[in-house]
């Protein structure tokens, strides 16, 4: 029996049973934009950046199992337009001032914005008022940039077995919380050695006193656009930063 495959933008892409569209694409070195997906964790399906059209229906590539013969549209003006709008939503929902952000150049949100040629936030800024948590000796939490992808939640719960992070609130008031009555990271058992310390795709969970170490021009997405880094994205694992 031949291996089953999907038709991704007209290209046959093989997959093995149980793989999602995202898994199959990544294995074939094809880029589908994504933020909440990480090969090491259970799919989440919340950012919707990976929205593709499978057999004519809009679906999330990171959660939908591939099926033999499925026709998937990925790199199209319509989808990229929708993805750009999603990025703009994420930008205005938080406070993203890249010039003063330590993650700049290594940030997936920013890299995707470049990839999808997002030139402006388009919508009115929400400018939410979110306090920074600097209580922890090693780590700073800047919630202003949280995109609620739950990667830290999943890493801390499923890998570190600490459940340091969780989400609270609902709708536009949804926000990240930490596992302490005081609400302070210092009062949790979080440590820089945790997996959860190294999965944030944006600039929320930051090591103190080590920012801006790599010069502009040499940072991850200065070197090469994110769309060309599929192999590295697919190989992300426990010991590597997102």
């Amino acid at each position: 029996m031949t291996q089953p495959s999907i038709l991704l933008d007209g290209l046959p892409v093989p997959f093995v049973d149980g793989q999602t569209i995202m898994d199959a694409a990544m294995a074939a070195d094809i880029f589908i934009p994504h933020l909440c997906h990480h090969p090491e964790f259970k799919p989440q399906g919340s950012c919707k950046l990976c929205t593709v059209k499978a057999n004519g229906r809009y679906v999330s590539a990171c959660t939908l199992p591939a099926r033999d013969g499925m026709e998937v549209e990925n790199n199209s003006p319509d989808l990229n337009d929708k993805r750009r709008t999603l990025l703009q939503m994420l930008f205005v929902e938080g406070n993203h001032f890249c010039p003063s952000c330590e993650k700049s150049g290594n940030c997936m949100l920013q890299a995707l914005a470049y990839e999808l040629e997002m030139l402006s936030p388009h919508f009115d800024q929400f400018y939410p008022n979110r306090a920074v948590d600097a209580s922890h000796p090693e780590v700073l939490l800047d919630f202003n940039r949280c995109i609620l992808c739950e990667l830290c939640v999943r890493a801390s719960r499923d890998v570190d077995r600490k459940s340091v992070f969780s989400l609270s609130g609902r709708g536009i008031d949804k926000h990240l919380i930490v596992n302490a009555e005081s609400g302070r990271l210092a009062d949790t058992d979080f440590s820089w050695a945790d997996k959860a310390a190294h999965v944030c795709p944006v600039g929320v969970i930051l090591k103190k006193r080590s920012g801006f170490a790599v010069p502009i021009g040499k940072r991850r997405y200065d070197v090469e656009p994110i769309g060309m880094q599929v192999e590295r994205l697919a190989a992300r694992s426990a010991d590597e930063e997102s």
């Binding site: 406070n95 001032f97 010039p99 402006s120 936030p121 800024q125 400018y127």
Partner: peptide, 18 residues
């Protein structure tokens, strides 16, 4: 044409907004 971070999303000055 909006040129630069400050014109585009408020930039550094907007960090006073809270």
């Amino acid at each position: 044409i909006a040129v630069g971070a400050c014109a585009v999303n408020g930039g550094l000055p907007a960090q006073r907004n809270h």
